[in-house]
């Protein structure tokens, strides 16, 4: 169970990206986070693994306060939270297999990373994850030689290497075409349904939300404006989330 309590983030420039946001995510749920660009979706997801330090509020995960964790505890917490990104965030010049293995860094003794050594089991595991997302044959290519859809699958394989209990997905399909979008989303769905991983995924397209999400939270200018089931987003709610002038697409 992940509990967000009164989470507020004010950036150095005074921008209030999150404003007193609270909601709960039960284990195994597929939660979609929607809202306009700049509504605070990315900030919310990054506060959960503290890539961004929240200004106020708490994030409790199974009762443990993530916001109060020390650096060492954070290492232990982060390795159980996988993350995929809109721009994939692969290390371009490294090989695909190295990018995937990087998912194990939270488990490995840093001294061994100095000489770029991974245990044999991890390498086998990495191949398995690449097979799972269907690009095992690309393992020894450079990451930037892959297409966008393939890169995002490497990103998912990297997150899977962490044996995550939570998966954060920050607009994972926003840089991809609709066909690829469904392929990536179905990987996430597979992870959610078969591995029981809680997924928090920010999305732009409502049809993807309807198709994949169990529950939806919507943000507007940092405030939580909707929390409920996808089918409950009617035209009125839609206008509330996206503003009066918004038109539905897709």
């Amino acid at each position: 169970m992940l509990q967000i309590k009164n989470l507020t983030k004010i950036y150095d420039g005074g921008v209030k990206a999150l404003d007193n946001v609270s909601f709960d995510v039960p284990d195994g749920q597929f939660l979609a986070v929607i809202g306009l660009s700049g509504s605070g979706k990315s900030t919310l997801l990054r506060c959960i693994n503290r890539l961004i330090e929240p200004t106020e509020g708490q994030i409790l995960w199974n009762g443990e306060d993530i916001t109060a964790a020390s650096q060492e505890e954070m290492r232990r917490i982060r390795r159980k939270i996988g993350m995929v990104f809109q721009h994939f965030n692969l290390v371009h010049r490294s090989k695909v297999i190295t990018n995937v293995l990087a998912g194990r860094l939270g488990y490995i003794n840093p001294a061994w990373s100095l000489i770029n050594r991974f245990p044999k089991e991890d390498i086998e595991k990495a191949i398995k994850q690449l097979e799972r997302v269907g690009i095992a044959e690309k393992a020894n290519q450079r990451a930037d030689e892959l297409s966008g859809g393939q890169q995002q699958r490497v990103g998912i394989a990297r997150a899977l290497m962490q044996d995550p209990q939570i998966m954060l997905a920050d607009e994972p399909v926003a840089s991809l075409d609709p066909v690829l979008a469904h392929s990536i989303m179905s990987h996430l769905e597979d992870i959610n349904k078969n591995d029981g991983v809680t997924v928090l995924c920010s999305l732009h397209f409502l049809d993807l939300v309807h198709r994949y999400a169990d529950k939806v939270v919507a943000l507007n200018e940092g405030k939580l404006v909707f929390e409920g089931l996808p089918k409950d987003i009617d035209d009125e709610k839609f206008k509330e989330i996206y503003g009066r002038d918004a038109e539905r697409v897709g």
């Binding site: 390795r79 490294s94 860094l105 990373s113």
Partner: peptide
């Protein structure tokens, strides 16, 4: 690029590991 840095940090890597796996590959050329 800040992206890979963020991604490696998110895996639980510490500072040294982040430098080796996210910074070094980018600065070799």
């Amino acid at each position: 690029l800040a992206g890979p840095l963020e991604a490696i940090q998110a895996t639980g890597a510490n500072r040294l590991q982040t430098i080796i796996y996210a910074v070094v590959p980018q600065i070799v050329p």
